[in-house]
Design a protein around this nucleic acid. Structure first.
Lengths: 124, 124
DNA sequence: ATCAATGCAAAGCATTTGCAGGGCA
DNA sequence: TGCCCTGCAAATGCTTTGCATTGAT
């Protein structure tokens, strides 16, 4: 039986607090500071467990590495092309879903990512 | 000076015809059938060139591998969670962009991906 | 005692890079 | 000749896997 172990809870708590949509490596680095020993395998294992439990969401922003998000409520992302930052914004609604309905497609999620330049990065 | 070589043109033409948003490997496999010799490096080099030229778009659907798209007009994607197929649909419009405008964020692209189950895959 | 979780190292992919040879201007 | 393109192989980075050990019930 799968259980919420200390490692998994630690990682989950970290994700709850931080809002930078960390990569597995970033989670690993934080975890290393809080436990005597932890391996990448455990981090990946824990992240997969938490995603399967529905406690985290895996976010695919670019092709470099997966990022993880503890915000489960529907929301959208502002993604800066320069610094790569990912900021949560309220869920964007689509003006008209009818083109999808007519496609005979069963929707489970609508992902809206806004790409551009954040105010910290010189715009352009 | 960068030029549109035969290999690059071949790859571009392939992307123009097919509409399955292939991965680099899929492009490589097709190219291999049409040229005596071609290497992965050339495929990646060509894809990067075409993306930089604005002739292709790189699409990040999942974290496994990047996919490429020759359809440049704004459009959205229907992505099946079961078979992984990616189907183009007309561009979805957002009902209200004001939450973004107020963020002091310069928008360069709005990405809308609809995740779910296509009619070919048993729904659920 | 049992069964899952962990650490470690190795393996697996996708992608990038270094470098020598080849092709075109 | 010069310079970019190509092929090949090695390297890199992210993620997964195999396996022996550890830990909890």
């Amino acid at each position: 039986m799968k259980t919420l172990t200390k490692h998994r809870e630690l990682i989950y708590n970290d994700l709850q607090i931080r809002r930078d949509h960390p990569t597995a490596k970033m989670v690993f680095d934080t975890a290393k500071n809080n436990v005597s020993k932890i391996s990448f395998a455990t981090v990946y294992n824990s992240l997969e467990y938490l995603v399967n439990q529905g406690m985290l969401k895996k976010v695919n922003i670019n092709s470099d590495s997966a990022r993880y998000d503890a915000v489960l409520e529907p929301h959208s992302h502002l993604i800066c092309q320069t610094c790569g930052s990912i900021k949560d914004i309220p869920a964007m609604q689509l003006a008209d879903m009818s083109p999808i309905q007519s496609e005979d497609f069963q929707i489970s999620d609508v992902i809206v990512n806004i790409i551009g330049y954040c105010k910290n990065c010189d715009n352009k």
